[in-house]
């Protein structure tokens, strides 16, 4: 390889390397902060490892690619409740994603299905109970 071509190759490698490292480095920093904010969920005690996982409660984690039965399983809500809220029959629609259901049944209102599902799931979350605190000694 001629010295001129070598110099071009070196320049391209260095510039590309800096761009990639800078771009992904910044994104890494940003998502790492996100992760620290969320933190890994606590590891359940060994005795409860065999049981079914606890229900998810954060409806903001619902995505367009999810299906109604999957959401129902994740949030411990009966699928019929969600289908009823959408006004759609479960038959033939159970393996369709929320995006597909939106396209098929609510073409004029993009994003409607996911919002309806979020609201329905939220409405069926168990209300938090306040643990009784023993009265403090006088």
């Amino acid at each position: 390889m001629s010295p001129g071509k070598q110099r071009i190759l070196v320049t391209v490698l260095i510039v590309l390397g800096i761009l990639l490292a800078g771009f992904f480095g910044l994104r890494f920093f940003h998502t790492f902060r996100e992760l620290r904010r969320h933190g890994p969920p606590p590891v359940p005690p060994l005795a409860s490892m065999e049981d079914a996982p606890a229900a998810e409660t954060d409806v903001e984690l619902i995505r367009d690619w999810m299906t109604v039965p999957y959401i129902a399983m994740t949030y411990h809500v009966h699928p019929k409740v969600i289908f009823d809220a959408l006004g759609i029959s479960p038959r033939g629609n159970e393996d369709k994603s929320l995006a597909q259901l939106n396209e098929e049944f609510f073409t004029q209102s993009p994003g409607l299905v996911i919002e309806l599902v979020k609201a329905t799931v939220q409405a069926h979350q168990p209300t938090p109970t306040v643990e009784s605190v023993p009265p403090s000694a006088p």
């Binding site: 070196v10 320049t11 391209v12 490698l13 260095i14 590309l16 390397g17 800096i18 761009l19 990639l20 490292a21 800078g22 771009f23 992904f24 480095g25 994104r27 890494f28 998502t31 790492f32 996100e34 992760l35």
Partner: peptide
Amino acid sequence: DILSNISGLSLGLILLAIG
């Protein structure tokens, strides 16, 4: 997200090191 960013960052650093 974090893992795909680590992958991109590693590739960038390797290209930079080779350069």
